[in-house]
Design a protein around this nucleic acid. Structure first.
Length: 894
RNA sequence: GGGCCCAUAGCUCAGUUGGUUAGAGCAUCACGUUUACACCGUGGAGGUCGUCCGUUCGAGUCGGACUGGGCCCACCA
């Protein structure tokens, strides 16, 4: 550890009236100019601390929750930097995905059409729609179609505007990010990295295509992955529908005669034409005689079997269900496991297909189907109910219920299940060995707090399919894949053409694969592009590889990966965190990061999760301007990881008070450092002073430093374990004791009232304590501490580049009890004055205080300091057998 | 249906392996302008630690049940 206390200036330049105003701008500028937070390349991995910063969504807006959780990360970054680590702290911007796509559409009045050629001179029809993101999507007809490359360029243009505002906020908050290390999730490097990882997955067989029933959002007309599902309670109704047996029942005396019709109860009668079977539980005696027989679907006439399956629940509805292709995910299981035919009737737009499926063959059935063709699900349902009523196949009235229905988390209509060709990536959902390996990764990762690990486990254990990574959108990272077109004009999906890795990123919609000419696109014997883009998580799951430049900077990658820390919110463990673990496991066979720090949410005063939709949300910049950044950081720092925290301006006021106190207490302490000749080398007046622990001889001073040493140890251990609240708490508690008791106790002595030795002791102790305290507070209050540090250190000697304090080396350990007992005695004397309703300045003619016998020697050691601080003429310290410090008597000076 | 977290002063929260009289800040009340700080200081008041049972010489702390709040997961006809 270097001799930090040798760099101080003899004559501190302390302002007359210290103030927090303007410190954010002042020090942000200085840190930028100094490169205070620059990562230094060429380091060994063990010298580096690397952070996988969450890239905020630039098309959204920052809210108080961001300020909260990013502060937690910054505290750790600053701590590790002071501990000597070369901190790799990049910032990414998430400008990939649906929110950005919508924002660009509305803002510029354009829409992406990948089939169009790139127009280098394109200029958007409009820009700067007021309230861009909140505005209703403009009609597709009003939007000018542009090529994907043009669309991406507009996105980058808009994002860069957003990024400026975001960066300004982060700088004001004091995040010690290295602003030369930034990336965007849609930029060329991220696209290339994403495509490269995909090609490697493809080569290893981890990525594959499959034509399969797919959860489908009819509004966005895209496939949706398991991780993007949410259940929402929806009104619905059970419709009791009769199915007639097609074959006559053979007389059997042993079995009870089954009823002539079988009744099922369904919430989705519009799917009757898609019905492929009825299913009941194999043990259900009511239906056992029917297994293997067939029934006729009412109205549509298809003949379907009655089958048995363990997932049918006897006590639900009538105990027998109709299987449709596809009404819900259970239908998919039945369809797959019972080898049932496919009768798809829904199109990508969520409307009933124009032609009836195979099986609906009778004239009556076809006629009935024509009544539905082209209708939405909602209208078709109403029409089918009417028709069932007419035919007499509906028994009674539909019974209204409320039931959970699956939605895309960003969607407004229930998901449908539609057979489509999609790309999948293995994630353990269909492979027990991989699942076990990923569960082991969850165990290997260190979670803060530890109980968050359970969410990961729950998710991995509950996976029921591989990760669907293709999306039928136009904006995003395209799959770097073409297909040969056969002589009949059909794409050959099982022979994908891929580009060489050094050609990435590619846009297959405009780039031509090797060996083909551009004019062969779409022609028999030519090629065609894969039309899809990747799920945004397929790219953001690679943030460690993107930030550390796995693809193109092996030296940087080597010194920063696997990263040390992934900070993130608890609600995206199943998406971002899990997906990142999957990608690193598949590609690097390692964890992507060692530690995960999970932040809680911010709750508004009503204990509800603060959300943007509530309108009355405070803007983060307004908050920082109102309270000051150190104050807001203090509020954030007083909440533990993983715990939801209340939005509490009161805590910010406390933080501001602390910052001001740091300025004032420092000003006071430094005023004595300037005064004494013995603190500077005699041959070099004006040269840096020496704060020598050997000068600290008074018991009270040594006690104070011993207590400070304990604080250093506790704070260091806490921060090393990501427990920033504990570190702040012990530091702050000590600091207030330091101000209220210690400084008051030494005021007289440091002014020379007890001679030169005592004065030098107090002066050195004040200086040493100040140096340590400023460094302990630096991660929490970077602006106030830097301001104070600058008063007595050379320009450019940022406190944030100083070594984290070690316990001070004292010639002899101090007795920690002296400070506490001296404060206790002082408190008893203050109480006497307070109860007499006189000023603290009032002199005491005589006073006696009882002190527990065990503590009496410690009290006596500080007696002169106590006497002076209490302005007592005569002080008696009486050893007592009680365990508290009590005032025995006090006589005020008249 | 399975699981996780939480419940301590009016409010926001600490309370480390069980151990004297359960702490802090805010708010509140009283007093004091004191040569670092009125963006202040000093002191006071305020809690049967959600409920019940158990383990123990001893429980805010450990175990069980329950109540209430928040969240995650689930194949939800």
């Amino acid at each position: 550890m270097s001799q930090h206390h040798d760099t101080s200036h003899l004559r501190p330049a302390v302002p007359e009236r210290p103030s927090l105003d303007g410190l954010e701008e002042k020090w942000d500028r200085a840190w930028s100019a100094q490169g205070a937070y620059a990562f230094e390349p060429g380091a060994r991995r063990d010298e580096v601390f690397s952070i996988d910063t969450p890239p905020p969504t630039v098309s959204g807006s920052l809210h108080v929750g961001h300020v909260f959780s990013y502060t937690h990360t910054d505290i750790i970054a600053r701590f590790e930097r002071m501990r000597g680590k070369n901190v790799f702290y990049p910032m990414g911007w998430d400008d990939n995905g649906l929110p950005t796509e919508r924002r660009v559409q509305n803002y510029y009045g354009v829409r992406c059409d990948p089939s169009l050629p790139y127009d280098p001179d394109f200029s958007p029809p409009r820009q700067g729609q007021a309230g861009g993101q909140g505005a209703k999507a403009s009609k597709a007809a009003d939007q000018v179609p542009v090529s994907r490359r043009n669309f991406v360029e507009l996105c980058e243009r808009l994002s860069s505007e957003d990024e400026k505002q975001f960066e300004a906020l982060w700088r004001r908050l004091g995040l010690s990010v290295d602003w030369s290390q930034t990336y965007q999730t849609i930029d060329a490097h991220a696209r290339a990295t994403s495509q490269l990882a995909f090609l490697r997955n493809l080569a290893r067989g981890e990525a594959y295509q499959q034509l399969a029933p797919t959860l489908w959002d009819v509004t966005f007309r895209t496939a949706v992955a398991q991780a993007e599902l949410v259940d929402r309670d929806q009104p619905g109704a059970y419709h009791r529908v009769a199915f007639a047996l097609t074959d006559p029942i053979l007389p059997d005396a042993a079995a009870p005669a089954p009823s002539p019709a079988i009744h099922i109860e369904t919430t989705r009668p519009e799917l009757l034409p898609a019905c492929v079977a009825l299913v009941a539980h194999p043990d259900d005696e009511r239906y056992q005689p029917l297994f293997g027989r067939h029934v006729k679907v009412p109205l549509f006439g298809a003949e379907v079997p009655v089958v048995a399956h363990r997932l049918a629940t006897p006590d639900k509805g009538s105990g027998i269900a109709m299987v449709c292709t596809f009404g819900d995910v259970t239908d998919v299981i039945w369809w797959r496991e019972l080898h049932l035919p496919t009768r798809a009737i829904l199109g990508w737009d969520g409307r009933i297909l124009p032609e009836p499926p195979m099986g609906v063959d009778s004239p009556a059935g076809k006629a009935a189907y024509q009544e539905l063709a082209g209708l939405t699900v909602f209208s078709a349902r109403r029409r089918v109910v009417e028709m069932l009523r007419q035919s007499g196949d509906l028994e009674g009235d539909p019974q209204p219920i409320t039931h959970p229905v699956k939605f895309f988390e960003k969607g407004e209509k229930p998901l449908e299940i539609i057979p489509t060709r999609q790309w999948y990536l293995t994630n353990g959902g269909a492979d027990e060995a991989l699942r076990a390996r990923l569960l082991a990764r969850g165990d290997e990762l260190t979670w803060h707090p530890d109980f968050m690990r359970v969410r990961y486990q729950n998710w991995v254990e509950g996976l029921n399919s591989d990760w669907l990574i293709s999306r039928q959108r136009f904006f995003g990272v395209p799959f770097p894949v073409w297909y040969p077109v056969d002589q009949f004009g059909h794409p050959v999906h099982d022979r994908p053409i891929t580009p060489p890795e050094d050609r990435l990123p590619v846009d297959p919609a405009s780039d031509t694969p090797a060996g083909y000419r551009p004019d062969q696109r779409g022609q028999p014997g030519g090629f065609i592009a894969d039309p899809d883009v990747m799920d945004t998580w397929a790219t953001s799951s690679l943030t460690p590889q993107i930030a550390t430049r796995w693809r193109d900077d092996p030296a940087l990658f080597e010194s920063t990966f696997p990263m040390d820390l992934r900070p993130q919110a608890q609600d995206i463990i199943r998406t971002w965190l899990f997906a990142t673990v999957v990608r690193a496991d598949l590609e690097q066979r390692s964890l992507p990061f060692k530690d995960a720090a999970i932040s809680g949410f911010i709750l508004d005063p009503d204990r509800k999760k603060m959300s943007k939709s509530q309108g009355n949300v405070v803007t983060p910049m307004g908050l920082l301007e109102q309270h000051g950044s150190d104050a807001v950081r203090y509020w954030a720092a007083s909440a533990r990881l993983g715990t939801d925290a209340a939005f509490e301006p009161g805590q910010m006021k406390v933080g501001r008070r602390l910052a001001i106190k740091i300025l004032n207490a420092s000003k006071f302490s430094l005023s004595f450092l300037a005064a004494g000749p013995e603190t500077s080398p005699p041959d070099r007046p004006g040269a840096p002073l020496t704060l020598d622990p050997a000068l600290v001889t008074e018991p009270l001073d040594r006690s104070m430093l011993a207590n400070l040493n304990a604080v250093v140890e506790a704070a260091t251990e806490a921060l090393a374990n990501y427990d920033h609240t504990r570190a702040l708490e012990v530091t702050e508690t000590f600091f207030w004791t330091f101000c209220d008791d210690y400084i008051e106790l030494v005021k007289a002595r440091v002014n020379g009232a007890a001679g030169a030795v005592g004065e030098a002791s107090a002066r050195a102790a004040l200086g040493l304590a100040l140096s340590v305290l400023l460094r302990l507070f630096a991660p929490f209050q970077p602006f106030a501490t830097e301001e104070v540090w600058s008063w007595w250190h050379a320009a450019g000697q940022s406190v944030h580049r100083q070594p984290w304090p070690d316990p001070l080396g004292l010639p002899e350990p101090g007795d920690r009890a002296v400070l506490a007992v001296a404060g206790g005695v002082l408190g008893a004397l203050r109480k006497a004055k307070s109860e007499a309703k006189v000023s603290m300045r009032t002199e005491l003619a005589a006073a006696t205080v009882a002190v527990p016998a065990a503590l009496a020697p410690a009290a006596v050691a500080a007696k002169a300091d106590i006497t002076a601080a209490a302005r007592a003429h005569q002080l008696t310290l009486a050893a007592s057998d009680t365990e508290t410090i009590d005032l025995v008597s006090a006589t005020l000076q008249p």
